[in-house]
C-alpha cells in the first residue's frame, strides 16, 4: 500500500476534474458496499445472506476500480487503498443515502432498489464516456447494478404486496430514504465540468427515466410514492451526516492502527 501523499498541485485542471469525478463515483460505491456488508451473517435467510454479500462485494469491486484509476490520474503515489483508508470524512464525496444506517430488511431493499436503478442509468450513460477507463468500468458495473435493481425491486413487490407488517416496513423504509433521493440528481460543479469535458454524466438528466422505473415498481408493489419535501444534500461536497464517521472508524481502523498491514 502506498503511503498517503499530499495533493499533487501540478495536476492540470482537467485532470483534477477527472480525479475528483472518479473519487466521487468510487466513494459512493465504497461506502454503500461497506454499509451493505453489515448484513453479513444477519440476513433473514442464508440465501439472502449470500445475495447481500455478493452485492456488497460488487460495490467494493466497483469502488476499487474507480479509486485505483483516480490514484493513477492523480500521479501522487496514492493507490486505491490509500484513498479508501487514509482520507478523512470531509474528503469523501459519496451520496448521503448510502451512509444512512441499514434499518430493517424492507429499508435495505428499498435502498438497493433506489440505488440499483440510479446506478444502472448512470453507468449506462457513463459507458459512452470519452475516457476509455471510465467507460470500461461502467460497462462492467452496469450489469451488476441492473441485478441489484431487479433483486431489490422484486423484494419491494413481495414486501409491499405481502403482509400488513411487510407492507408497513417497506413503506417506512421508502419514506425514510426518499428525502435523500433528491441528491442523486443534483449537479455538483465537478459533475458539470466532467460532463462538459465529455467523460462524465450530468445526473440531472437521469431523473425522468428513474422516476418512470421507480413508479412502475411502486405501483406493482402497492406502495405509495412519498411526497417530495425535505431535500438534504452535501455528500458530493464532503458535508456528511454523522453516520460517515462511524463507518470510516470501522473501515479504516486496521490501516490506521497497523499502517501498511497486508495479508
Amino acid at each position: 500500500m502506498a503511503v498517503a501523499a499530499l495533493k499533487n498541485d501540478t495536476l492540470s485542471p482537467d485532470r483534477q476534474v477527472l480525479f475528483d469525478y472518479a473519487v466521487m463515483l468510487g466513494d459512493t460505491a465504497l461506502i454503500h458496499g461497506q454499509r451493505l456488508s453489515e448484513w453479513t451473517s444477519h440476513a433473514p435467510t442464508v440465501e439472502l445472506d449470500i445475495a447481500l454479500g455478493n452485492q456488497a462485494l460488487d460495490l467494493i469491486g466497483q469502488a476499487r476500480m474507480f479509486l485505483e484509476y483516480a490514484g493513477k490520474v492523480e500521479e501522487a503515489g496514492r493507490d486505491e487503498d490509500a484513498l479508501a483508508f487514509l482520507r478523512d470524512g470531509f474528503d469523501f464525496r459519496n451520496l448521503l443515502i448510502v451512509e444512512l444506517p441499514n434499518g430493517d430488511f424492507g429499508h435495505t431493499m428499498a435502498r438497493q432498489f433506489i440505488m440499483g436503478v440510479y446506478s444502472s442509468l448512470l453507468y449506462e450513460a457513463l459507458s459512452a464516456s470519452q475516457d476509455d477507463q471510465l467507460a470500461g468500468i461502467a460497462k462492467k458495473a452496469v450489469k451488476e447494478q441492473r441485478y441489484h435493481a431487479r433483486h431489490g425491486g422484486e423484494w419491494l413487490v413481495r414486501l409491499g404486496d405481502g403482509t400488513e407488517e411487510s407492507h408497513a416496513r417497506a413503506q417506512r423504509g421508502l419514506d425514510e430514504l426518499w428525502p435523500y433521493t433528491h441528491e442523486l440528481f443534483t449537479t455538483d460543479p465537478v459533475e458539470s465540468a466532467a460532463a462538459e469535458l465529455g467523460f462524465g454524466v450530468d445526473p440531472s438528466g437521469l431523473r425522468a427515466e428513474w422516476d418512470g422505473l421507480v413508479d412502475d415498481v411502486l405501483a406493482r408493489a402497492g406502495l405509495s410514492r412519498p411526497e417530495d419535501d425535505w431535500q438534504p444534500d452535501g455528500g458530493k461536497r464532503g458535508e456528511h451526516t454523522e453516520n460517515l464517521g462511524y463507518i470510516l472508524a470501522e473501515l479504516q481502523f486496521l490501516q490506521r492502527a497497523y499502517p501498511g498491514a497486508e495479508w
Binding site: 435467510t45 440465501e47 439472502l48 449470500i50 445475495a51 455478493n54 431487479r150 433483486h151 422484486e154 413481495r158
Partner: peptide, 20 residues
C-alpha cells in the same frame, strides 16, 4: 436445494447461491 418464497425468487436465490 434452497428455500424461496416463490419460483422467481428461487431463481434469484439460485443465481446468488450456485452461480457466483
Amino acid at each position: 436445494s434452497l428455500h424461496a418464497a416463490d419460483a422467481e425468487m428461487a431463481i434469484e436465490n439460485a443465481r446468488d447461491v450456485y452461480t457466483r
